[in-house]
């Protein structure tokens, strides 16, 4: 049984049919990516999984439990956390406060301290900026903070929404290296990306999303080699 099974979900924004029968699976220990153009429904898929925009039809199973109707805060408690799109940090809280906020659902003081140390080890830059408001960090640091905050909840499954967005190429490399490292230490990751090249090269498996539907799936290597993917998302001539 997969860690996360998404069966045929349909999500609407009012009358707009954003997801049309999306089904994906994430196995324990994998990095799975979801690529696609603007408005394809990538972020909506993540938001539907984390309960922020619930699905109207379909089923989401996490660790064998149906979480389709579960409310967002309970989903976090069950072990799925999301680092939202666009480096959304609490701009006016300090780095430390942002991270503490990430552990909101936890009450084990010692465990939280351990997680904090772990996050600081992954992102030493955050330690240096500990008492600085989140909004004053650079773009890359804010992304680190958003990911670090999501890690503070000790997720079984980490949802990353476009971590490379708006970052300089060198920082994109750095962030993706970190994502791989996180995965090696045992965090399962579902990654949404527009930067298909890098995303596909670090993932185990990937899905291609187009106007709310999965049109293609396969291992990272397969997708990288696929003609349609190359033409549409990799800008290959």
């Amino acid at each position: 049984m997969a860690l996360l099974e998404v069966h045929n979900i349909n999500t609407f924004y009012g009358n707009i049919h954003a997801l049309r029968g999306v089904s994906i699976e994430v196995e324990e220990g994998e990095i799975v990516t979801l690529i696609g153009g603007n408005g394809a429904g990538k972020s909506t898929t993540l938001n539907t999984i984390s309960g922020i925009t619930p699905a109207r039809e379909g089923q989401i199973i996490f660790e064998g439990q149906d979480i389709t109707e579960t409310r967002p805060h309970e989903i976090v408690e069950k072990g799925i956390t999301q680092a939202p799109e666009g480096r959304r940090v609490f701009a006016r809280l300090t780095v430390r406060e942002n991270l503490d906020m990430g552990a909101y659902t936890r009450r084990d003081r010692d465990g939280i301290k351990e997680s904090l140390d772990a996050v600081y080890e992954i992102f030493p830059r955050l330690k240096e900026r500990e008492s600085q408001p989140g909004g004053t960090l650079s773009g890359g640091e804010q992304q680190m903070l958003a990911i670090g905050r999501a890690l503070m909840a000790q997720p079984r499954l980490l949802l990353l929404d476009e971590p490379s967005m708006g970052l300089a190429p060198i920082l994109v490399q750095e962030i993706f290296a970190t994502i791989e490292r996180l995965n090696e230490t045992g965090t399962t990751i579902l990654l949404v990306e527009q930067n298909a090249q890098v995303a596909l090269s670090i993932c185990n498996r990937g899905y291609v999303l187009q106007t709310g539907e999965i049109v293609l799936s396969g291992t990272g290597g397969e997708l990288l080699a696929n003609k349609m993917v190359r033409d549409a998302y990799l800008g290959a001539s």
Binding site: S50, I52, R71, P72, H73, I75, V76, E77, T81, Q82, A83, P84, R88, V89, F90, A91, R92, L93, D100, M101, G102, Y104, T105, R149, A150, A153
Partner: peptide, 25 residues
């Protein structure tokens, strides 16, 4: 208290507050 922290988070960014597991409602 925890309640106060939840309020601060909500005031700052409601969506993120949800994402860190705060029952905003």
């Amino acid at each position: 208290s925890r309640v106060g922290r939840a309020w601060v988070a909500m005031r700052e960014d409601e969506t993120v507050a949800q994402a860190v597991g705060i029952n905003t409602w």
